[in-house]
Design a protein around this nucleic acid. Sequence first.
RNA 1: UGAUGCUUAGCUCAGUGGUCAGAGCAGGUGCCUUAUACGCACAAGGUCAUCGGUUCAAACCCGAUAGCAUCAACCA
Length: 1126
Amino acid sequence: MSAKYQEFSKLNLPEIEQEILAKWDASQAFEQSMSLREGAPHFVFYEGPPSANGMPGIHHVISRTLKDLVCRYKTMQGFQVKRKAGWDTHGLPIELGVEKELGITKEDIGKKITVEEYNQKCREAVMRFKDKWDDLTRKMGYWVDLSDPYITFDNSYIETLWWILQQLFNKGLLYESVSIQPYSPAAGTGLSSHELNMPGTYKNVKDTSAVVMFKAIENDRSKFLFEAARVNGEEQPEIFFMAWTTTPWTLPSNLGLTVGAKINYVLVETLNPYTHIPVNVVLAKDLIGKYFKPEGENLPIGSYKEGDKILPWTIIAEFTGADIEEARYEQLMPYEANSAAAAGGDPFRVLVGDFVTTEDGTGIVHTAPAFGADDFKVGKKYGIGILTMVDKQGKFVDGLGEFSGRYVKDYKDEKGYVDVNVDISVKLKKENRAFKIEKYEHNYPHCWRTDKPVLYYPLEAWFIKTTALRDKMVELNKTINWKPKSTGEGRFGNWLENMVDWNLSRSRFWGTPLPIWKTEGEDNIEFKCIGNIEELNSEIRKANEVLGGDVNKNYLHEGILDLHKPYVDEIVLVSASGRPMKRVPDLIDVWFDSGAMPYAQWGLDYDKLKAGDPRPFKAPFNVSFPADYIAEGVDQTRGWFYTLHAIASLLYEEVAFKTCVSNGLVLDKDGNKMSKRLGNVVDPFKTINEFGADATRWYLVTNASPWDNMKFDLEGIREVQRKFFGTLFNTYQFFALYANVDGFAFKEQYIPLAERPEIDRWIFSSLNTLVAKVKASLDDYEPTQAGRAIEEFVGEQLSNWYVRLCRRRFWKGEYEHDKICAYQTLYECLEKISLLMAPISPFFSDRLFNALNEVTGLRQERSVHHVLFPVSDNAAVDASLEERMQLAQDICSLILSLRKKVNIKVRQPLQKVLIPVLDPAMKAQILKVEDLIKSEVNVKELQYLTEDSGFIKKKIKPNYIALGKKLGPKMKAVAAALGSFTQDDINRLEKEGSISLLIDNEPLILQANEVDITSEDIPGWMVANKDSLTVALDITVTPELISEGNARELVNRIQKIRKDNGYELTDRIMVQLTDHQELKGSIAQFNTYICAEILADKLELVPELPDGTEIEVNDIPLKVFVTKKA
RNA sequence: UGAUGCUUAGCUCAGUGGUCAGAGCAGGUGCCUUAUACGCACAAGGUCAUCGGUUCAAACCCGAUAGCAUCAACCA
């Protein structure tokens, strides 16, 4: 323990941080922050695993600051907070990175490079930037246990995922199905959404589009259409539903027509423009204009002659989509391969779907479930079956007549490729089944590798039936505390409501394999889902015994050593009926990896597993589920937040986290997204090295609410550094300077609050109010509020008011009661601040705390992060005291503003200030701070004007809040009436407590408490107002006042000379001045004052001073000669 | 296209159903020196995105529009 408070030459945050980091390392401060809380209640935090495959960016600093500050705060609240780090190690970005590095594509894997080698590369690549991440973690002061992280590619991690999948499989929540996915026939592979979002994949292309006519069959639902046509005179009317398609090749696979329930449709009697046969067609009313000209309306059909430009048409019925639901139609292009039986459902019906619009087409959507996600969904809902009349090479299957074997798009760059879409259109035209054929330009996705158009194609995939738990998940979500609320209720809640089953399958190489084996062939398929390594090993041996030969020969001895591809794929298992089973080649979605971290981070406990424990995970899972708190970027809403929630709901019908903070994006200072391409990425290392992690963290937290997108500007960090840390640092420096002089080490008895001066009690009250506010804000996960409150206190209350007003107490007089009060008060403020700010800025707070504590030894703890958070002392909070100090600050500000207006500097004393006081309470309040105001603004007296002094001009306004409900619409009239009140009217109202008005010829009694009376003017005086406060200043400068002003000015000049001469604070001086008529009186009168201020024994007036310094005192030139007294 | 959020001073952000809309920074003016010019004080700066509605009263509540952002989707 050193006897002196450390003084610094200059604030250097990065340097302080280096020092603190070394100290933390040496003392194992982080480990201690947990071990000191052994046995205390847990606060559970989950770390969302980052991928160490890329460099960390500044946006990682914000979410990690949020994580860290809550964990530190909860530790200070007495909780034990363990935080295990984790790494996300699987997934497409890693694979793509490796492909790029090796210069290969997906197709080359298994050919140019073995899967084994490839996965080895991935395993190496995944931790490429781990050092950088660890470095950032350390430098930004993020306390997380990096020594024992969970890693998603570890066997034990994958094993836990398998166990979970097995649970879901056993519950029937894991199933195989088809889903419609983007697929590139040219490349023979499915495309991920990532690949589809690559630049240049969407291109404008011209395709043959067709409006085709599906012939309606008369039934219950369509009867009214036929009757309408018959009324119109036709005996055997033909009615057609018109639908538009840009992909005519999907027409042989058509199984339905989808309409919008609320869209208005019409039945139109007209002619087919190609065949000129009279027809009746159904389309959306809004789209009539697209196909028919207004001139043709209601023209008789018979009037049309071939070659006419105008097609006659007549609306003969009007109805909504809901009216024709379940109507039926004839198949458009029947062949042997696409029969209703082949579709496996009840096709050729009119369906209702919410995706239908009337923006283009006909308002009726041709629905081929195999080739569109919406089509598939609505088709499934209605059970119309599915037809996939195109194979994986992109050509029509056999059994489609003349179209069999033809490619639906030019995937092969065939010479003389004839567009099959055109042929289909021509055929339909001839058959009176096409209404309009034209080229249509639209935006369509293309395979980024082959440049050929993508098709949406049904592919086999494994799904988790999350929809089965939807209601439960929605219900559980309501118990989660979301910050901000809108993320949980809106974005997340909405997502849950519209959730679809989770497509787990990924056809890649580096990831968690799906642990499902299945028998080959189409009949009696048997499945086996493996749940742990031991089970797999025993199944391996069993298969070898049953199937014999070389089956699994490489895995018999040691069992399986790596759960990745290609090893798992080599393993053959045996089904219950004795047939060989091969693994489903899929990997699972990496989001499952991270969503399962609450369980997999600990791994499986075989003892519990064998005992049939439903939660067979290693300790400390039992005390680490669910999480009290998680925090990530808002982009994780449908990522990690969802998968955590989904898995916990599926397994245990519980939440995985109780509070979730989702932070917004970090944009550059102009509001653009940071991207490498634009070169506007902020390097977190550079930022921290230059400005310090504390300033960066403080800026990120206080600049904007974390969930708003923030525009990141280094200028803002600079400001924080200067304004907040600079001020706080200076306040400490001030304290240290004098405390060292006086040897203050908090050795004296703690002086009770009641015995301290008013200003001390005030800053204490204010401090405790702050403590309460900070605690409330942090408890509510609102760190921005907390940080801003601390800033405000340090800048305005502590530094700029308390210290400024109290300066003299620290250097004047003996080391006794008042001085000790001042030291104790300032010390406690500084110490509490160090505690309050510790969660947000862990370094400087620790430095400040220790700088103080190393001298006084008041605390046992060696780090601020081990101390319990302060508790607000209600007894110290005095609202009335805070109010009157605020009053004093406001009054001072008003007086300064008046001085400025008339250009009278503060050093010039003025005689008096007038303050109208309308009630005795206000006067009492100001009286208590009168001295303070007088010295602060250099005024000799405060005069209170009460109403009877006659000086005040009052103003009256309705009290809108009180009167609003009572008066309602009469409010305006009353306001006008009050506006025309005379001073006498106001006085009478005040005296009598009420007044009667005539509003709209009705009498109305107004009570005194229903109006606001203020005094905004004092006739003849210069006034300034703030809210209801009014201040007038007497700006008369009498000769006496000038004289005193001169004296003060002189003091000020001589002080400057002292400083220039480099004298010590305590040096006494001798002063010679040239005699000057105008100053003579002043110097004589204020001689004692001047001498006391400048530490001179006397002032000597001489006629000439050749060696003196020339100065000016209020424009009076003179010379002074100052020497240090020996 | 949908969901969600944002839009207030030149910039970064507060703000509450109550009649003059706030702070910091930048810019302006004036002040130094026994903590701090990396400071202090004062003044100026606004169509609260636009348009409608509810209300005695709207920056605030509601509805539409526009722009930005994220996520999801992408379609006939």
